[in-house]
Nucleic acid binder design. Structure first.
Lengths: 210, 210
DNA sequence: CAATAATGTTACCGTACGGTACCGTTTGTA
DNA sequence: TACAAACGGTACCGTACGGTAACATTATTG
């Protein structure tokens, strides 16, 4: 990343709360910058400066850039986990409601995810080294998310639950990555309609045409 | 990319036909290396050496790395276009057969695409600069592929063709990117079964349970 | 206050990269 | 054979990056 790219950006990385401990500020900065400019597109120096500190302090908290990346990804994983847990807490025992809430959350992306795709997927593509410590995090997290959705579908009483889960899961993965391919102005597909259609086609009682 | 990474790779980039003109060899090398190690993960020097030439000759044929990347992407786009054209030539007028052949091709990935996801998607994620000359190629190509699939679905006589197309398209995008998130050993979903299920649910005559 | 830990500052090292200048060598072709 | 175009080789420039050393400064805490 040319340091110029930081300055000219529309979101100049709104100042990070300077009362936070440096380590946390660094993670916040890393999260923002890695997501916007890519892992290889951001240098540690830029991260430190964005965090209101310097490279030395960064290296006192993180052994290497690789491990900083791994912790960045772990943070995303934890956030995802929290999201699923909240769903379960919000609609306990009601799998279908949880699925619907999950879909709503996906459609209202702007809040939790920005329009640059799934950060874990992006990282998976930006990290070519198979031994990178972040890869484990990505693989485990993605696997777990799929399993949680599968469990919900199984509990929902809908037909062919495994297929339903895969269909929904891949649809979301595809939708987010397609958005990224089209650029910020490219209008993607109508996810809400697709969700509804898929759910309907998995209704346990076969709904025949009138 | 550490040059060590090239040596230790299992596929040491099987030698490129040295009778080809340098420009073509460079594009072949670039295609292989960009795909395996990422665009930012490969230096021009490595590309030139892999192509059996040197950096100077590379810069005699390509103004900059950016433009080399753009041409790399254009090559992928052209190949995709050829694929769709071949489909139409192979099953002229039979949209459903073309759709099925497309699905087969996707499922037999290993031939045309390797197991590292769609190169265009990967590039879209690896290129953060919105003014990169490769972005136009990516956006146009992805849009066009979606349109071609939509056209086929419209001509197929299946119900709700636009939704069907989006469902299939996003499913494929998601499947390939999910594979990348899981790593080479992670078993993905059963695409064939999902395809069949989706097609069945779009049969124009409502098929009721017996 | 004293002592210790955490942070800031600056300078630096080694390496890799994108890109270019210069010159020698091959190749094709009139 | 002669000449021009294309190619190979090498050295180099400027910059950026990951990472470290050494020291000054501030906070904590007893």
């Amino acid at each position: 990343m040319r340091s110029a790219a930081v300055e000219q950006t529309v979101h100049p990385t709104e100042a990070i709360d300077s009362s936070l401990p440096p380590r946390q500020r660094i993670l916040i900065a890393a999260r923002d910058l890695f997501y916007r400019f890519g892992i290889q597109g951001v240098g540690v120096e830029t991260i430190a400066e964005t965090a209101g500190t310097n490279k030395m302090t960064l290296y006192r908290h993180f052994e290497s850039k690789e491990l900083l990346v791994a912790e960045y990804l772990s943070g995303l994983a934890a956030e995802g986990e929290r999201f699923w847990d909240d769903l379960d807490r919000q609609y306990p025992g009601d799998a279908l409601a949880q699925i619907n809430a999950w879909m709503d959350e996906i459609c209202n992306q702007k809040s939790r995810w920005r329009d640059g795709g799934c950060a874990l997927v992006n990282a998976a593509i930006q990290i070519s080294d198979p031994d990178h410590p972040g890869r484990r995090v990505i693989e485990q997290t993605k696997r777990k998310h799929r399993e949680r959705l599968t469990a919900l579908c199984l509990a929902s009483g809908l037909s062919e639950p495994q297929m339903l889960a895969d269909q929904l899961f891949l649809l979301v993965e595809g939708s987010r990555v397609f958005q990224r391919s089209l650029g910020p102005d490219g209008c993607a597909c109508d996810l809400r309609a697709l969700f509804a259609r898929i759910l309907a086609s998995h209704e346990p009682l076969a709904v025949a045409a009138p």
